[in-house]
Protein backbone atom coordinates (compact mmCIF):
# COMPACT_ATOMS: atom_id res chain seq x y z
CA UNK A 1 0.00 0.00 0.00
CA UNK A 2 1.19 3.46 -0.69
CA UNK A 3 -0.38 6.40 0.89
CA UNK A 4 0.40 9.94 0.04
CA UNK A 5 -0.63 12.94 -1.89
CA UNK A 6 -0.54 12.62 -5.70
CA UNK A 7 -0.78 15.67 -7.94
CA UNK A 8 -2.17 14.56 -11.30
CA UNK A 9 -1.48 17.03 -14.13
CA UNK A 10 -3.28 16.09 -17.34
CA UNK A 11 -5.73 17.90 -19.58
CA UNK A 12 -7.36 14.72 -20.86
CA UNK A 13 -10.60 14.30 -18.82
CA UNK A 14 -11.02 10.66 -19.82
CA UNK A 15 -7.63 9.71 -18.35
CA UNK A 16 -8.17 11.81 -15.21
CA UNK A 17 -11.47 10.06 -14.59
CA UNK A 18 -9.67 6.70 -14.67
CA UNK A 19 -6.61 7.60 -12.59
CA UNK A 20 -8.40 9.57 -9.90
CA UNK A 21 -10.60 6.74 -8.51
CA UNK A 22 -7.84 4.16 -8.88
CA UNK A 23 -5.30 6.26 -6.99
CA UNK A 24 -7.93 6.90 -4.34
CA UNK A 25 -8.52 3.15 -4.11
CA UNK A 26 -4.79 2.87 -3.40
CA UNK A 27 -5.36 5.17 -0.46
CA UNK A 28 -3.83 8.27 -2.00
CA UNK A 29 -5.08 11.77 -1.73
CA UNK A 30 -5.46 13.06 -5.32
CA UNK A 31 -5.30 16.63 -6.57
CA UNK A 32 -6.03 17.23 -10.25
CA UNK A 33 -4.49 20.10 -12.22
CA UNK A 34 -5.51 20.54 -15.83
CA UNK A 35 -2.77 22.91 -16.94
CA UNK A 36 0.74 24.05 -16.11
CA UNK A 37 -0.18 27.07 -14.02
CA UNK A 38 -2.62 25.07 -11.88
CA UNK A 39 0.10 22.44 -11.44
CA UNK A 40 2.67 24.99 -10.25
CA UNK A 41 0.30 26.58 -7.75
CA UNK A 42 -0.82 23.14 -6.51
CA UNK A 43 2.80 22.17 -5.84
CA UNK A 44 3.31 25.31 -3.77
CA UNK A 45 -0.04 25.11 -1.96
CA UNK A 46 -0.59 21.37 -1.64
CA UNK A 47 2.94 20.02 -1.08
CA UNK A 48 2.28 16.72 -2.91
CA UNK A 49 4.43 13.61 -2.42
CA UNK A 50 4.62 12.92 -6.15
CA UNK A 51 3.65 14.73 -9.36
CA UNK A 52 2.32 12.87 -12.42
CA UNK A 53 2.86 15.30 -15.28
CA UNK A 54 1.64 15.15 -18.87
CA UNK A 55 4.04 17.06 -21.14
CA UNK A 56 1.40 18.22 -23.61
CA UNK A 57 -0.45 20.85 -21.62
CA UNK A 58 -2.74 23.48 -23.12
CA UNK A 59 -1.11 26.55 -21.57
CA UNK A 60 2.61 25.89 -21.34
CA UNK A 61 5.27 23.39 -22.25
CA UNK A 62 5.61 20.54 -19.75
CA UNK A 63 9.39 21.08 -19.56
CA UNK A 64 8.82 24.64 -18.41
CA UNK A 65 6.51 23.31 -15.68
CA UNK A 66 9.29 20.96 -14.47
CA UNK A 67 11.75 23.83 -14.43
CA UNK A 68 9.44 26.06 -12.39
CA UNK A 69 8.59 23.31 -9.91
CA UNK A 70 12.28 22.52 -9.48
CA UNK A 71 12.96 26.13 -8.49
CA UNK A 72 11.06 25.61 -5.27
CA UNK A 73 10.55 21.91 -4.69
CA UNK A 74 12.35 18.58 -4.91
CA UNK A 75 9.07 16.66 -5.19
CA UNK A 76 9.45 13.55 -7.39
CA UNK A 77 8.08 14.25 -10.89
CA UNK A 78 6.99 11.38 -13.13
CA UNK A 79 6.43 12.46 -16.71
CA UNK A 80 3.59 10.76 -18.58
CA UNK A 81 3.59 11.53 -22.27
CA UNK A 82 2.40 10.32 -25.61
CA UNK A 83 5.41 11.98 -27.24
CA UNK A 84 7.87 9.15 -27.47
CA UNK A 85 10.87 10.96 -28.93
CA UNK A 86 14.12 10.33 -27.06
CA UNK A 87 15.00 14.02 -27.19
CA UNK A 88 11.78 14.88 -25.34
CA UNK A 89 12.50 12.38 -22.60
CA UNK A 90 16.12 13.45 -22.21
CA UNK A 91 15.09 17.11 -22.04
CA UNK A 92 12.45 16.35 -19.39
CA UNK A 93 14.87 14.25 -17.35
CA UNK A 94 17.59 16.88 -17.67
CA UNK A 95 15.15 19.54 -16.48
CA UNK A 96 14.80 17.52 -13.31
CA UNK A 97 12.04 14.97 -13.89
CA UNK A 98 12.62 11.77 -11.94
CA UNK A 99 11.07 9.25 -14.26
CA UNK A 100 9.29 8.82 -17.55
CA UNK A 101 6.27 6.66 -18.39
CA UNK A 102 5.14 6.28 -21.99
CA UNK A 103 1.47 6.50 -22.91
CA UNK A 104 -0.30 4.13 -23.12
CA UNK A 105 0.69 2.39 -19.85
CA UNK A 106 -0.76 -0.23 -17.58
CA UNK A 107 -1.81 0.84 -14.14
CA UNK A 108 0.58 -1.64 -12.43
CA UNK A 109 3.58 -0.09 -14.13
CA UNK A 110 2.52 3.42 -13.17
CA UNK A 111 1.92 2.40 -9.55
CA UNK A 112 5.35 0.75 -9.34
CA UNK A 113 7.00 3.92 -10.65
CA UNK A 114 5.05 6.04 -8.19
CA UNK A 115 6.05 3.77 -5.28
CA UNK A 116 9.71 3.83 -6.35
CA UNK A 117 9.71 7.60 -6.66
CA UNK A 118 8.07 8.10 -3.25
CA UNK A 119 10.44 5.63 -1.60
CA UNK A 120 13.44 7.29 -3.19
CA UNK A 121 12.32 10.69 -2.01
CA UNK A 122 11.85 9.39 1.54
CA UNK A 123 15.24 7.67 1.45
CA UNK A 124 17.05 10.78 0.30
CA UNK A 125 15.36 12.78 3.05
CA UNK A 126 16.77 10.35 5.57
CA UNK A 127 20.14 10.63 3.79
CA UNK A 128 20.89 6.94 3.97
CA UNK A 129 24.48 5.96 4.47
CA UNK A 130 24.01 2.50 3.03
CA UNK A 131 22.20 1.57 -0.18
CA UNK A 132 20.91 -1.95 -0.64
CA UNK A 133 19.19 -3.47 -3.67
CA UNK A 134 19.05 -7.22 -4.12
CA UNK A 135 22.56 -8.60 -3.97
CA UNK A 136 24.17 -5.15 -4.11
CA UNK A 137 25.18 -3.13 -1.07
CA UNK A 138 26.89 0.28 -1.29
CA UNK A 139 28.20 2.04 1.81
CA UNK A 140 28.45 5.70 0.87
CA UNK A 141 30.58 6.64 3.90
CA UNK A 142 33.30 4.01 3.54
CA UNK A 143 32.89 3.63 -0.27
CA UNK A 144 32.62 -0.10 0.30
CA UNK A 145 30.74 -2.10 -2.33
CA UNK A 146 29.54 -5.65 -1.69
CA UNK A 147 27.82 -8.14 -3.98
CA UNK A 148 26.21 -11.14 -2.27
CA UNK A 149 28.17 -10.25 0.86
CA UNK A 150 31.53 -10.35 -1.01
CA UNK A 151 33.48 -7.08 -1.14
CA UNK A 152 34.12 -5.82 -4.69
CA UNK A 153 37.01 -3.56 -5.67
CA UNK A 154 35.93 -0.73 -7.97
CA UNK A 155 38.11 1.83 -9.72
CA UNK A 156 37.41 5.45 -8.73
CA UNK A 157 35.46 6.12 -11.99
CA UNK A 158 33.41 2.93 -11.59
CA UNK A 159 32.56 3.93 -8.03
CA UNK A 160 31.52 7.44 -9.09
CA UNK A 161 29.15 6.00 -11.69
CA UNK A 162 27.69 3.46 -9.24
CA UNK A 163 27.34 6.20 -6.66
CA UNK A 164 25.39 8.41 -9.10
CA UNK A 165 23.14 5.47 -10.06
CA UNK A 166 22.58 4.33 -6.46
CA UNK A 167 21.79 7.82 -5.23
CA UNK A 168 19.04 7.88 -7.90
CA UNK A 169 18.18 4.20 -7.65
CA UNK A 170 15.16 3.19 -9.68
CA UNK A 171 15.31 6.32 -11.77
CA UNK A 172 16.80 6.97 -15.18
CA UNK A 173 20.12 8.81 -14.98
CA UNK A 174 20.84 10.42 -18.34
CA UNK A 175 24.14 10.01 -20.20
CA UNK A 176 24.79 13.68 -19.58
CA UNK A 177 24.44 13.37 -15.82
CA UNK A 178 26.56 10.23 -15.65
CA UNK A 179 29.28 11.90 -17.69
CA UNK A 180 29.16 14.87 -15.34
CA UNK A 181 29.39 12.52 -12.33
CA UNK A 182 32.28 10.44 -13.68
CA UNK A 183 34.29 12.89 -15.77
CA UNK A 184 33.20 16.23 -14.41
CA UNK A 185 32.00 17.34 -17.85
CA UNK A 186 28.69 16.79 -19.56
CA UNK A 187 30.35 16.97 -22.94
CA UNK A 188 32.76 14.04 -22.41
CA UNK A 189 32.71 11.21 -24.94
CA UNK A 190 29.80 8.88 -24.19
CA UNK A 191 31.98 6.06 -25.55
CA UNK A 192 33.92 6.17 -22.24
CA UNK A 193 30.64 5.87 -20.39
CA UNK A 194 29.72 2.70 -22.29
CA UNK A 195 33.14 1.20 -21.55
CA UNK A 196 32.98 1.99 -17.82
CA UNK A 197 29.39 0.78 -17.46
CA UNK A 198 30.61 -2.45 -19.07
CA UNK A 199 33.46 -2.71 -16.51
CA UNK A 200 31.05 -1.97 -13.67
CA UNK A 201 28.70 -4.68 -14.86
CA UNK A 202 31.61 -7.18 -14.96
CA UNK A 203 32.05 -6.56 -11.24
CA UNK A 204 28.50 -6.28 -9.90
CA UNK A 205 26.30 -8.32 -12.22
CA UNK A 206 25.85 -12.08 -11.83
CA UNK A 207 25.80 -12.39 -15.63
CA UNK A 208 27.23 -9.23 -17.25
CA UNK A 209 25.69 -10.12 -20.65
CA UNK A 210 22.22 -10.06 -19.08
CA UNK A 211 22.43 -7.18 -16.61
CA UNK A 212 19.79 -7.19 -13.91
CA UNK A 213 21.06 -4.30 -11.78
CA UNK A 214 22.48 -1.69 -14.14
CA UNK A 215 19.73 -1.47 -16.76
CA UNK A 216 20.24 0.29 -20.10
CA UNK A 217 17.54 2.79 -21.05
CA UNK A 218 18.19 2.95 -24.79
CA UNK A 219 18.97 6.44 -25.99
CA UNK A 220 18.46 7.94 -22.54
CA UNK A 221 20.92 6.59 -19.99
CA UNK A 222 21.03 3.94 -17.26
CA UNK A 223 18.91 2.95 -14.31
CA UNK A 224 19.90 1.03 -11.18
CA UNK A 225 17.10 -1.42 -10.58
CA UNK A 226 15.71 -1.37 -7.05
Amino acid sequence: MMAGHVLLVDDEPALVSVLEPVLKAEGCKVTVAIDGNAAISSVIAGDPDVVLLDLGLPDMDGKAVIQTIRDSSQVPIIVISARHQESEKIAALDEGADDYVNKPFEIGELMARIRAAVRRAKASEEAVAVFEAGPLKVDFTTRQVEVMGEPVKLSPKEYLLLHALARNAGKVVTHKRLLAAGWGSEGADSQYLRVYIGLLRQKVEADPSYPELVITEPGLGYRLKV
Binding site: E12, A14, L15, V18, V22, A82, P104, F105, E106, I107
Partner: peptide
Protein backbone atom coordinates in the same frame (compact mmCIF):
# COMPACT_ATOMS: atom_id res chain seq x y z
CA UNK B 1 -2.18 7.00 -27.92
CA UNK B 2 -4.45 9.29 -25.94
CA UNK B 3 -7.58 7.08 -26.11
CA UNK B 4 -5.37 3.99 -25.93
CA UNK B 5 -3.93 5.30 -22.66
CA UNK B 6 -7.38 5.59 -21.12
CA UNK B 7 -8.36 2.15 -22.39
CA UNK B 8 -5.15 0.54 -21.16
CA UNK B 9 -5.25 2.29 -17.78
CA UNK B 10 -8.95 1.46 -17.27
CA UNK B 11 -8.66 -2.18 -18.30
CA UNK B 12 -5.53 -2.80 -16.23
CA UNK B 13 -7.13 -1.03 -13.24
Amino acid sequence: RTPLTTISASASS
